[in-house]
Simulated scan of single mutants.
Amino acid sequence: MSLNYAETSSEVSFEDWKLYEGWGREAKQLDEEGSNRGLILSLLFDHCLLLHPEQIARIESKLPAYTVGSLQRKSQMDVLLEFITSLLEFPDPGDKLKELGELIKDVFQLMPSGKHMIGRDLGRLEPTPSLKYCSAG
C-alpha cells in the first residue's frame, strides 16, 4: 500500500493545522513556541491517523481523506462506547461508576481562569475628555 500525502486533500491539512497552530480553540499555547509545538502535534496526528482503517479505505478508494478532527472525535466515541460496554459487565456497574466519579474529581481539577478581571486593578474608569466631548455632541 502506498500512501502519498500529497494525494490527501490540502484543505484537510489546512483545516487541521488551524486547530493546533493557535488559530482555533484547540490551541494549547498561542505564542510562537505554541504554534511550533502545535504544528508538530498536528503533523504527528496526520501521520498516525493516515493509518486509521477508515482513512486507509478512503484513500485506497480514491475518496477525499477524513479530517484529523473527525477521526479523533470518532475514536473518542469508540473508546467511550467500549468503556460503557466494559462497565456494564461489572456485577454492580453503579458502584463502579461512582468509584470512577471520585477518581475523576481527583484527577481533573478545575483551574481559575486568568482571562477574567475579577480581583484585578482596572485602573482609571472615568471617561477621557475626548470621550466626554464626543458624547456631548
Rank of each mutant, 00 (worst) to 15 (best):
L81C: 04
G34S: 10
S135P: 00
A27S: 15
S42W: 03
S13D: 09
Y20F: 15
L100Y: 15
I84L: 15
Y5E: 07
K62D: 11
P91K: 14
S113L: 12
S113V: 05
L88T: 06
D16K: 04
G101Y: 05
G114Q: 13
A65M: 01
I56N: 01
G119P: 03
Y20C: 05
L122A: 09
L63D: 03
K105M: 07
E21H: 07
S130R: 08
S86P: 05
D121C: 08
Y20E: 02
L80V: 04
H116S: 06
S13H: 08
C48Y: 03
E26G: 12
F45C: 03
G101M: 03
A6Y: 10
R120F: 06
Q55M: 09
A57E: 13
K132N: 01
E82H: 12
L63V: 03
F108D: 05
E82W: 13
L122S: 08
W23Q: 12
R124L: 02
T128Q: 10
T8N: 07
E126Y: 03
E126M: 06
F83V: 07
L81M: 13
D46K: 13
G114L: 09
D121F: 08
S130D: 09
L71H: 00
E82Q: 14
F108T: 02
S13T: 14
S75G: 09
F108A: 09
P112G: 05
A65P: 02
L122T: 06
S9F: 00
E21I: 08
I40T: 10
D106S: 15
I40Q: 09
S10I: 12
H52C: 01
L131M: 10
E89V: 04
L44S: 06
D95G: 08
A136M: 00
K115N: 14
R120C: 08
I56Q: 10
V107A: 14
D121Y: 11
D95F: 06
L30W: 14
T85Q: 14
E26N: 13
R25G: 07
V107R: 15
L43G: 00
Q55T: 02
S2Y: 09
C134G: 01
V107K: 15
L63R: 08
S130M: 06
S10P: 14
E21S: 14
